[in-house]
């Protein structure tokens, strides 16, 4: 063993991986920032009664969920420069691909959440004179949040690990940094250290979601 029994080497390894880790965190947070609101919009469009809207949106969801995220990252990184004649920053391409992909998953989770709200809630809003927008923000959305917490936590945990896919277009994220160290020192140990990083991140994610679940515990449906 080169690292696990040598604290000094371990500290050096972690230092070598810290930029990668920062990039991983950036991909993670920016993806959540963009994909959750986008997912809500996609869900609403998917539920539109106009087929002109709902059919193309279903198609979008099918493509995003039906093809590998790795392929989507490639496609965006190489296709956008061809279409726009302008190079795209690796990080920007990654975040765009992740946001579009995760928005599709979140959209279906949100759609499920919205469809699970009893029709009586909408009727109550209607007879009380709420506008559609008031009903959505004051009655539907707060209840959807509680209902989707569990499936959303699943996606967020998957996202933590999926960030490693960015390394295929040479974004220097955590896994790439670990791989570099591994080949430089001819040891697999850096990969396991990276594994511990992902595990720790997901530990935090789990804590955050159990906190949120408790926050929403003040009522039962």
């Amino acid at each position: 063993m080169r690292y696990f029994n040598n604290p000094e080497a371990m500290i050096k390894l972690i230092a070598a991986m810290q930029d990668g880790f920062a990039n991983t965190l950036a991909i993670f947070f920016l993806t959540l920032l963009f994909s959750i609101p986008l997912g809500m919009v996609v869900a609403l469009l998917r539920m539109s009664r106009r087929r002109m809207i709902s059919v193309p949106v279903s198609l979008y969801i099918l493509v995003m969920r039906g093809t590998p995220l790795m392929l989507q990252i490639f496609a965006i990184y190489f296709a956008i420069p061809m279409l726009l004649g302008q190079n795209l920053d690796r990080m920007a391409a990654t975040i765009l691909a992740f946001s579009l992909n995760y928005a599709a998953y979140f959209a279906e989770i949100f759609r499920g959440g919205m469809m699970s709200i009893p029709v009586g809630q909408h009727e109550a809003c209607q007879v009380l004179g709420f506008t559609k927008i008031q009903a959505f923000f004051h009655v539907v959305l707060p209840q959807v949040c509680k209902r989707v917490l569990l499936p959303v936590s699943n996606e967020v945990i998957t996202l933590v690990k999926d960030t490693s896919l960015a390394n295929i277009i040479a974004v220097s994220e955590l896994f790439r940094a670990a791989k570099n160290e591994a080949s430089r020192t001819a040891s697999v140990e850096p990969l396991f250290v990276a594994g511990l990083f992902y595990l720790a991140m997901n530990g935090v994610v789990t804590l955050v979601f159990s906190y949120l679940t408790r926050r929403f515990d003040y009522y039962k449906d």
Binding site: E123, A124, V127, V139, P142, Q143, D221
Partner: peptide
């Protein structure tokens, strides 16, 4: 708004 309605299953806002 001139009409008020009370439903069989109340439809209170649970949250």
């Amino acid at each position: 708004l001139k009409m008020g309605m009370v439903f069989q299953d109340y439809n209170l806002f649970p949250h």
